[in-house]
Computed example of a mutant assay.
Amino acid sequence: MRRQMVLSWSGGKDAAWTLHRLRATGEADVVGLVTTVTSGYERIAMHGIRRDLLQVQARATGLPVIEAVIPPQCDNATYEASFAQALQDARTRWPACETIAFGDLFLADVKAWREALCARLGWTPHFPLFGSDTAALAREMLAGGLCAQLCVVDTQQLDASFSGRAFDAALLADLPASCDPCGENGEFHTLVHDGPMFDHPIAIERGERVLRDERFAYTDFSVAA
Rank of each mutant, 00 (worst) to 15 (best):
S163W: 00
F127Q: 05
E140N: 12
F162M: 15
S82I: 07
G11Y: 04
T124M: 11
L172W: 10
P64S: 10
A101K: 03
C151L: 09
A101L: 14
T134S: 03
C179T: 03
E187H: 08
P64A: 09
V223K: 10
A138S: 05
T219S: 05
R114D: 06
H20V: 00
D213Q: 13
R2G: 15
W123D: 00
T18Q: 05
A24I: 00
W9K: 03
S39T: 14
T38H: 13
G186F: 01
G144A: 06
D104V: 00
C179I: 00
R21H: 14
A86F: 12
A148D: 00
G186T: 01
I204A: 01
P71Q: 09
P72W: 09
R50A: 12
S39P: 09
Y79M: 10
Q157V: 07
V31F: 13
M1G: 11
D154P: 06
A116G: 14
A96K: 15
A217M: 11
A224K: 11
Y218F: 10
A45E: 08
A112W: 05
A225H: 15
D199A: 09
R3K: 12
D159S: 10
D75E: 10
C179W: 00
G195H: 00
F167M: 01
F188A: 06
L53P: 02
Q85V: 09
I70C: 13
R215N: 03
D29M: 08
A148G: 00
A224G: 06
T36F: 05
T155Y: 02
G164W: 08
A203R: 12
G103I: 09
E187K: 06
M5L: 15
A96D: 15
A81P: 12
M5P: 05
D104M: 01
A119L: 04
W17T: 15
G207L: 04
Q149W: 13
Y41V: 15
A84I: 03
P128D: 02
L63A: 06
A28Q: 10
G12V: 02
A86P: 08
D52F: 13
T38D: 14
A148V: 02
I202Q: 11
L146T: 09
Q156D: 14
A177F: 10
S178P: 03
S222H: 10
R209P: 03
G11W: 02
S10K: 02
C151E: 08
P95I: 08
P125L: 01
T155L: 03
R139S: 08
G131Y: 07
R209Q: 13
L105F: 11
